[in-house]
């Protein structure tokens, strides 16, 4: 572990400096190592159960480190979330957070779930286009989704359809732009 990174370090800065100026360095550099998948036995069991529970939906399964990932179509979100919460094989009663990640060509909404009863965890992901991002709300499933969605709307402009109160939360009323997005500059904007 200790000698391998050093050799890599010596050549990287040069490549980085070239690519830095115009935009962020390209995300997919060919030699970038990827974090390993390491599901525990609960995760393994869960990934076996999921396709049975969600047999009616078009879902892609994968894993990110120790979490099972289900990639869902945006329109299926409320139904998938409801089943994830109510099906006793899953029992995801606890919503940890909803995080939006801006991949420039798409916005990815991550629902990190945990089951206090069954002690397993998973991530539900859905991707929307940044020009017209619409995801149905999950507030009907977990009440705690309320502020997480409002924050996602504030910072990334994701519209959570049918949300009862999608007012600005962390930003002030009338703020222009979506400061969470990669396209939002760090300093070149006028502060009120």
């Amino acid at each position: 572990m200790s000698d391998e990174p050093v050799s890599e370090d010596s050549e990287k800065p040069k490549a980085e400096a070239k690519a830095e100026k115009p935009a962020r360095p390209a995300r997919k550099e060919p030699e970038t190592p990827t974090a390993p998948v390491m599901l525990d036995e609960r995760g393994e069991a869960l990934s076996g159960v999921l396709p049975k529970v969600f047999s009616d939906f078009e879902i892609e399964y994968s894993a990110a480190m120790d979490e099972v990932v289900a990639i869902v179509k945006p329109k299926d979100i409320p139904e998938v979330c409801r089943i994830a919460k109510e099906d006793e094989r899953l029992n995801f009663d606890y919503l940890r957070s909803i995080s939006v990640v801006d991949y420039e060509e798409r916005l990815e909404v991550n629902y990190h779930l945990f089951s206090l009863e069954n002690r397993h965890k998973m991530v539900i992901k859905t991707s929307v286009s940044p020009d017209d991002p619409h995801v149905p709300t999950a507030t009907g499933v977990w009440r705690g989704a309320d502020w997480h969605e409002r924050e996602g709307h504030d910072l990334f402009g994701v519209v959570f359809d049918d949300h009862p109160n999608l007012k600005p939360l962390v930003l002030y009323e009338g703020f222009e732009g979506f400061p969470g997005r990669k396209s939002f500059p760090f300093h070149e904007y006028e502060e009120w």
Binding site: M1, S2, P5, V6, R27, T32, A35, M65, E67, V123
Partner: peptide, 15 residues
């Protein structure tokens, strides 16, 4: 642990 001065974690996501 022995870590490089500039940390470069592999591509991926962790929660």
């Amino acid at each position: 642990a022995k870590v490089r001065r500039i940390a470069r974690p592999p591509k991926g996501e962790a929660f």
